[in-house]
Design a protein around this nucleic acid. Structure first.
Length: 342
DNA sequence: CGAGCGAGCCGCCACG
DNA sequence: CACGTGGCGGCTCGCT
């Protein structure tokens, strides 16, 4: 009878709020911390319950200067929590965080005791330095993906993913993808319906379309390949519409096929076919951004066999269609775009 | 959407 | 013997 009058006690999901500890440090990226924090806080607000207890924490608690200049107030690192997250930041700050013994010890401890351990953006480097990403798949900001893979060969770096969940270890890509990851955590704990409501409230996607690589600068890696490959790139870019198979590239580079493969792998971490595809994608992206040509023209100019080949390749590499890419990245102003005939 | 095919990739070893 | 190079062959993966 007492139970009947006090229904609240019977609701199954009345457990204690889950402690979400977001670790910050001087020079960290403010959105890495506040984005996920807001997602969890909005989940509380929309559900009308205290599902999450979100706290900013630091090895050196107190005022934390973010890389944008604003300050955060951080509590001491908690001994235990449900979910431990580590923010990213600029290179100097992350390097310092990577060698912070207190933070490192805390991460190792949380990798055992917490239900989830995660990072946002370059926070992956801090997790990696603590050794908790070894043998795992992981994501980080696209600009840091190659460096992470090189510094920590035991990590399978996913350059495209918005976020990666590998067991209890979660890593997210650049900055705002921390929100995407937090949404997935909300979904894991309290269902997709609530997560979708939070996404709507924050005006973000529940499932963000595409891969993060669509934002990276095409072919920034060319300069790393040395003069030999740079000349080859220039040669190839002049004949993108031709076949450009591996044997002819090797011949042009003055190497055997086998050795050419090795050099591509060693200097650019690429394969001949993949590299040519990179060149063609870069050309197609540039044309989509700044020309009004239709897909057939662009496909031909970039060396694809036709529009469908272009569409397939875009889907596989960037996770969206050429048309969607153009709408996202076209240099035209919104006014110009509206001027098209109805 | 699945099966079959061929180009491409890479482990391995031989060579200088 | 270390190191850079080349060729063979099996296997994978993406296209038709």
């Amino acid at each position: 009878m007492a139970q009947m009058t006090n229904k609240r006690e019977n609701v199954p999901n009345m457990q204690k709020p889950k402690l979400i500890a977001i670790a910050v440090f001087d020079g960290c990226q403010i959105l890495d911390a506040t984005g996920p924090a807001q997602a969890f806080a909005t989940a509380n607000a929309l559900s009308g319950r205290a599902l999450f207890d979100v706290r900013l924490v630091a090895a050196a608690p107190g005022q934390i200067a973010t890389n944008g200049g604003m300050r955060l107030l951080a509590e001491p690192l908690p001994r235990t929590c449900h979910t431990a997250l580590v923010a990213g930041g600029d290179e100097m700050a992350v390097t310092a965080a990577m060698s912070d013994r207190g933070l490192r010890k805390w991460i190792v401890a949380q990798s055992k005791s917490a239900k989830r351990l995660g990072s946002v953006c370059s926070g992956a480097f801090v997790l990696a330095a603590a050794g908790v990403l070894d043998g795992r798949r992981a994501a980080t900001h696209w600009a840091g993906a190659d460096t992470l893979a090189k510094m920590f060969p035991d990590i399978a770096v996913d350059r495209d993913a918005i976020y990666v969940e590998d067991g209890k270890i979660w890593t997210s890509a650049g900055i705002t993808t921390g929100i995407d990851m937090a949404l997935a955590m909300v979904a894991q704990d309290h269902g997709r319906t609530l997560a979708a409501k939070v996404a709507r409230q924050l005006v973000v996607y529940m499932h963000r379309p595409g891969h993060q690589s669509q934002f990276s600068a095409p072919l920034e890696l060319q300069s790393r390949g040395g003069a030999r490959l740079e000349r080859l790139a220039a040669w190839a870019e002049g004949r993108l519409h031709e076949t450009l198979d591996a044997p002819s590239l090797a011949e042009q580079a003055g190497m055997s096929l086998r050795n050419f493969h090795r050099h591509m792998k060693a200097t650019l971490n690429a394969t001949p076919k993949r590299w040519v595809e990179d060149l063609r994608l870069a050309r197609a992206r540039a044309l989509l951004e700044s020309s009004g040509q239709d897909l057939a023209q662009i496909a031909r100019a970039a060396g694809f066999s036709g529009p469908d080949h272009l569409i397939k390749t875009f889907d596989r590499r960037l996770g969206l269609t050429p048309g969607a890419y153009r709408r996202l990245h076209a240099a035209k102003t919104p006014l110009e775009r509206e001027r098209r005939p109805q």
